[in-house]
């Protein structure tokens, strides 16, 4: 006689990560920290973009950076050279940051109360889409040196992001990149996605990016006041 039995489970495979992401989100909210998860393929210019942004914003509010890479602490060193605190997370063989890694890295950053936390994910347009880190939203960085159809090839990432930053816009005159087509493809995948064009090299478009960050922080304010009682 068989002793086999069926056990009903009905549990999300990513349930543990989602719980930990919820904990992170609650901590960020309690500290009044606006957290962004920056995602892109390798080489789109996330770190260069962050270096410029933290230099230009660090006198306005506290900023911290969590850098995710499989190996090396090169990116965190580039951020620290600006005087902004940065924690490097090496994922080893892992292809994405998860909520536990971000929670542990946040513990090691100085207090950022009322400030902004930039989390630079591992350069990969696939895996990081599925792992919530507790961020307010994802920002996908896409460069004019890439193919216009990337939003269609990697739809999960563009669907999960609130803002698409099109970087290396200064290269537009020498490339055959079709900006309008890229935006049209991104909106097919995510009709709500906001789009800004920037150049981390020249600084073009960054004023609009900072205005977007301030708009996100205003959206957060009623919650701050509620938690402050």
């Amino acid at each position: 006689m068989s002793r086999d039995r069926i056990i009903q489970v009905e549990r999300d495979i990513l349930g543990k990560n989602e719980r930990l992401a919820g904990d992170n989100r609650a901590r960020f909210r309690a500290d009044g920290v606006l957290a962004f998860n920056l995602v892109s393929s390798p080489g789109a210019g996330k770190t260069s973009l962050l270096v410029r942004a933290v230099v230009e914003l660090k006198d306005s509010f506290p900023i911290g950076v969590i850098e995710g890479d499989q190996q090396t602490s090169n990116d965190a060193e580039r951020i620290r050279a600006t005087g902004v605190p940065a924690i490097q997370v090496n994922t080893g063989k892992g292809c994405h940051l998860d909520a536990a890694m971000v929670g542990a890295a946040y513990d090691r950053l100085p207090h950022l109360n009322g400030g902004v936390l930039f989390i630079e994910n591992v350069g990969n347009l696939v895996c990081p889409a599925g792992f919530d880190l507790g961020e307010a939203c994802k920002i996908v960085v896409f460069s004019t040196a890439e193919g216009e159809d990337k939003p269609l090839k990697y739809p999960d990432m563009f669907a999960a992001s609130s803002l698409m930053l099109i970087n290396k816009i200064d290269l537009l005159p020498v490339l055959s990149f079709d900006l309008a087509r890229t935006i049209e493809f991104a909106r097919r995948v995510n009709p709500q996605i906001e789009v800004l064009t920037v150049s981390a090299r020249t600084g073009e478009g960054f004023a609009a990016f900072y205005a977007w960050i301030r708009k996100q922080s205003e959206k957060m304010k009623p919650v701050d006041m509620a938690t402050a009682g």
């Binding site: 002793r3 069926i6 009903q8 009709p191």
Partner: peptide, 20 residues
């Protein structure tokens, strides 16, 4: 139209286990 809101098909769940 591309004005679509995904309502199903994103789930990844362990439904049940057959054990002994």
């Amino acid at each position: 139209s591309h004005q679509l809101q995904v309502t199903g098909g994103e789930e990844m769940r362990v439904k049940e286990l057959e054990v002994d």
